[in-house]
Every structure is written in structure tokens, then in C-alpha cells.
Simulated scan of single mutants.
Amino acid sequence: MSATTTFEEDNITPARRRDPLLVVLWVALVTVAAIWVAPFVFITFTAMKSNSDVMTTSAFSPPTDIAWENFSGAWKKGNFSNTFLNSVIITAVKVPLGLLISAMAAYALARIRLRWGRFLLVFVLFGAMIPFQVMLAPLFTLVNSLGLIDTYIGVILPYLAFGVPYQVFILHGFFRAVPKELSEAALIDGASHFTVFRRIFLPISLPVLAALLILDFVATWNEFAMALVLLQNKNMWTLPLGLMSFQGQFSNSYGQLNAAIVMTVLPAVIVYLIFQRYFVSGLTSGAVKG
């Protein structure tokens, strides 16, 4: 009996002591998360309320009756059928094309021996150091001289110019970390650099490309300043520019304004949820070697 008791006492798991630092960290994380989530809750609830409910109820109280007409009214008043299409076309062309150009450029700079390889890398990365705000005036002059104002290509080309350097920087570091034996064995067997890039480097870089896709999609979808300068025709406006339609005579339609914001943000949220697991693995890829 005593031996059994001793055995049971030896297998009793002691009560876990909570690390004070861990508790403080969790409290801090929950607080920061609440601060970030609060505006989204406010916007979502307001988008589903009528103007009378917005004025009489608390900002964070859920709606009693969902005002679906806010979304249909916002879609019509903001001309979202046109601005949404423009955003889809610009984003669908710019994001994949930018990733492809960046991946090929990063592979060439990381794996092909070039005489001026380091200089070219520094030259490309120099583009990521220039704030695009200081380039808006000369950029408008250049695009206008080419006759590309109020055109898709007139917006896509500047987007590519300012987005590619950052992506090249990320992908170049990733490609440099790939063991040389993978590419050298394929080259010895007669494969071209394009085949090595397509068959080896692209498949293993999918997590990083997915992370860059999310970041680039959100940045392109929500871009405002450059589109405002280069797209002066309302028929060419993107979704962020369409939100300007709610200024002035529509400024009192709080429900419609927030419904328009929800519809503008929703595609970016959907893309993030689809590629979320790839985004996390892409951010951590290369963090641990061996």
C-alpha cells in the first residue's frame, strides 16, 4: 500500500506556476489586439445601422435591424460597379506581373555571375529607399508626356517601379540561402537557368511569394495618392478614390459611408485569409538553418 502511494505521489504533476512575464505579455497582446479590432467593429456595426440608429445607439452596440440598403446605396452612389472593376484589373495585372519580374530579377542577381551584379543589386534596392511622395510631381510629368494619364498602364507601370525593389530585396536573400548544390547539379545535367528557376526555385519559394502577394495585393488595392494624381477621370477611379464620392452631399450618410469602407476592405481580408498559412510560413522561412 505504501509503495503504491509513493508511486502515485511521484507521478503527481506539480501545479504550474504562471510566469509573470508571460502573463504581462498576454495582457499586452490582448490590449493591442483590442485596440486594432475596435475600429473594425465600429465600422462594421455602423455599416449595418440606419442613420437614426447611428445617432441614438452606442457606436459599439450591435444593430437590432440590419440595414442592407446601406450596401446597395453605397455601391450605387460610390459608382462601385466601375471603381471595383478598375481596382480588380489594376491589381490582377500588377501583382502577379510584379512578383514574376521580381523573382526573375532576384534569381539572376543571386545565382548568375554578373560582372556588375552587386552594383545592379544596389541600384535596384536604391529604388526602395526613395519615398514615392517626393516623386509624384515628376512622375505625373513623365506619365503625362507619354500620354498615359487616365489609363491602366499609366498606373500599373509606376506601381511596378515602386514595388519591385522591395520584393527583389526579400527574394534575393531567400535565393541566396538555397544550397548551391541544387542548382549546380541541374546545370551540370544540361538544364538552363530558366529551367532551374522554373523547376527548382519557384516551387520552393512559394511561401515567400505568397507572403509578398498578400502584402503587394493590400498595398495596390488600397493605394490612394498615386492613383489620385494619375487617374483624373472619375470613370478610371479605383475603390479608394471612389470613397471620395461620400464627401459633401453624402457626408451625413454614415451608414453608407461605412458600408463602402467595408466593401473596400473585404477583398483584402479575403485574400489574407486564403493565403494566411503561407503568409506565416513565408515570414519565418530562412529564420532557422539546418
Rank of each mutant, 00 (worst) to 15 (best):
S2F: 13
T5P: 00
E8M: 12
N11M: 14
I12D: 06
P14V: 04
D19G: 03
D19V: 06
P20I: 02
L21R: 07
L21A: 10
I35R: 15
W36M: 15
V41H: 13
V41S: 14
T44G: 09
T44F: 07
F45D: 15
F45P: 13
M48D: 11
S52D: 11
T56D: 06
T57R: 11
S58Q: 15
F60L: 14
S61Y: 14
S61A: 11
T64D: 10
D65R: 10
N82V: 13
F84V: 05
V88H: 07
I89S: 04
I90Y: 02
K94Q: 06
P96A: 00
S102M: 04
A106P: 14
R111F: 02
L114S: 07
G117L: 05
G117I: 06
R118H: 04
L121H: 00
V122P: 00
F123R: 07
F126D: 05
M129V: 00
P131F: 14
L139N: 05
V143Q: 00
S145H: 02
S145K: 04
I149G: 00
Y152W: 09
F162T: 11
F169R: 07
F174S: 08
F174A: 04
A186G: 11
G190R: 08
R198L: 10
F201E: 03
F201Q: 03
L202R: 09
S205G: 13
A211L: 13
L212W: 10
L212H: 10
L213W: 14
A219D: 11
T220K: 01
T220S: 06
A225V: 11
V229G: 00
W237K: 00
L243R: 00
L243Y: 00
S253K: 08
Y254P: 00
Y254D: 02
G255L: 04
L257C: 01
I261E: 03
V262K: 10
M263S: 05
L266C: 10
P267I: 03
I270V: 11
V271R: 12
S285R: 09
V288M: 08
G290V: 07
